[in-house]
Design a protein around this nucleic acid. Sequence first.
DNA 1: TGTACATCAGTGAACGCGCGTTCACTGATGTAC
DNA 2: TGTACATCAGTGAACGCGCGTTCACTGATGTAC
Lengths: 204, 204
Amino acid sequence: MATVTGTTHVRNSRGEGDKLRIQIVDSATALIDAGTDASTLSLRAIARAAGISAPSIYPHFKNLDLLVAAVVDASFIQLRTVIRQAADAAENPRDALVSACAAYFAFGREFVERYRTMFSADGYGPESGATLALLEQLLGQCVAAGASKSTDVHGDSFIVWAAMHGMTTIARPSRREDWRLGASDRSALFTELVTRLARLDARA
Amino acid sequence: MATVTGTTHVRNSRGEGDKLRIQIVDSATALIDAGTDASTLSLRAIARAAGISAPSIYPHFKNLDLLVAAVVDASFIQLRTVIRQAADAAENPRDALVSACAAYFAFGREFVERYRTMFSADGYGPESGATLALLEQLLGQCVAAGASKSTDVHGDSFIVWAAMHGMTTIARPSRREDWRLGASDRSALFTELVTRLARLDARA
DNA sequence: TGTACATCAGTGAACGCGCGTTCACTGATGTAC
DNA sequence: TGTACATCAGTGAACGCGCGTTCACTGATGTAC
């Protein structure tokens, strides 16, 4: 785990005190991305990383949970943006769904601890529902275009999401190395998982 | 979260000091099952729950991580037993696999925090591989009996496992209540997920 | 234009708390003679 | 059979630590007159 050394904070000028809020969220995000797990993450550690004193956090966040909630919310927005970009870059609904799912997977694998934090917080924040809704919309477009045989878009998008979540969290790097994946590699398995659950047609 | 009140410990007689080890593991398990999450679980809390003094843990466990590892190992054995019983009670390979998966899901939903702990610890312990191997064996029997079209038992059992894991961890009670599952309920979705990923034939 | 003042951004010291860990100990009990 | 002793199971007090939170403060800067 890398140690996040605190940059010394330069005092914001008058009327710009709210800037620190963003800096605090960014520092907390960096701390989590550096591998600090939920149990080690403390208000004081975040203050150190942000280069400020611990009491300076209070004007911006009443407690650690609300601070983490802000990180989680921002992360869900980031995740949704990444998914949407992947979908928008695709040529057809089927590719859009598959690419979107791949982007989700990639996000979770890149920001392991943050992803975990996003799904550890109670209620997942209001942004998680929007991410699922986006997935549902993409699957709906597949059905409309005749690329998916799904007859329950609502339910199927949920199981796609749940299964992706499992694939994202269970297959961590440096774990389960004793269990070889043989000929089929992990991302191929991931695509296969999405294909079957979304009831996509076999590739032409 | 229920508070686990410590039973007062009666001193073991001579030569039976090892009994405390089991009592400590049991107390830690009870503490976790009562909703104590990983960040709150402490050596002292476990000692309190077991009705002993904190230093009394040291002769049995060098540190908290090793104690939790013991809980995790025992839990994987318990999980595997539950799965195996479900499979053994079934009439055919297909039902065996589906029942085994349902048992897995039920375990994870009953012992939410413990399940989470099992998959939070580094390396998952040596018992997790055995659980996966059991799943693989069940899928293999489905293929042999002509109940599954899988051509990659190794890979397919992995994605079944990963997807179940996602379904187990993401669909927690009291969460996502805003997102209604409509006509199709959760356990039906779970069966559907297993059916598709294990490439089981449509029911007769 | 100059000055007094209110406000703002942020600090440093201090508190009580639960934690992991250590240490010397206590008292019961089996065993050797 | 009696007694001294070693061993065993477990304790209580103490330590230093990082934490969340409070409090009175500091010093820069915009604003009113």
